[in-house]
Simulated scan of single mutants.
Amino acid sequence: MSPQPWQNKVTNAAQIGGIETAVLDNGTGRGTRVAWINTGTGLRYKVVLDRAMDIFDAFFNQHSLTWLSHTGITTPEPFSDRGADWLRTFGGGLLTTCGLSHVGGPEQDAHGERGLHGQISNSPAEIESIIQPDLLTGKLDMSITGRMKETKIFGPSLELKRTLSGVLGQPIIRIHDEVTNRGNTIVPHMLLYHFNFGWPLVDKGTRFVWRGNWQAREGGINDQIFRDGYDFKTCPAPLDSHSGSGEAVAFIDVAHDGMGECTVGLYNAKLGLAVSMRFQKEQLPWLTNWQHWGKGEYVTGLEPGTHPPIGQARAREQNTLLFLEPGQTRTYDLELEVLTDETVIDRILKV
Rank of each mutant, 00 (worst) to 15 (best):
P133I: 02
P133A: 03
D134F: 01
D134Q: 11
D134V: 04
D134A: 01
D134N: 14
L135W: 02
L135A: 07
L135K: 02
L136D: 12
L136T: 15
L136W: 14
L136H: 14
G138E: 07
G138K: 03
K139N: 14
D141L: 13
D141A: 14
M142R: 00
S143E: 08
I144L: 14
T145G: 13
G146A: 07
G146R: 10
G146F: 09
R147G: 02
R147T: 11
M148R: 07
M148D: 01
K149A: 07
E150P: 01
E150T: 15
T151D: 03
T151E: 15
K152E: 12
K152Q: 14
I153F: 03
F154A: 13
L158E: 00
E159T: 08
L160A: 02
L160V: 04
K161T: 15
R162C: 08
L164Y: 02
L164F: 04
S165V: 06
G166K: 04
V167D: 00
L168Y: 02
L168G: 07
G169C: 02
G169E: 06
Q170T: 06
Q170R: 11
Q170D: 14
I173N: 00
I173K: 00
R174F: 06
I175D: 05
I175M: 12
H176D: 15
H176R: 13
D177K: 05
E178G: 05
E178N: 06
V179R: 07
V179W: 02
T180I: 12
T180P: 07
N181L: 10
R182Q: 14
N184V: 15
T185N: 11
T185M: 14
T185F: 14
I186F: 00
I186E: 13
I186Q: 14
V187L: 07
V187W: 01
H189T: 04
M190P: 01
M190R: 00
L191N: 02
L192G: 12
F197G: 00
G198W: 03
G198A: 13
G198K: 05
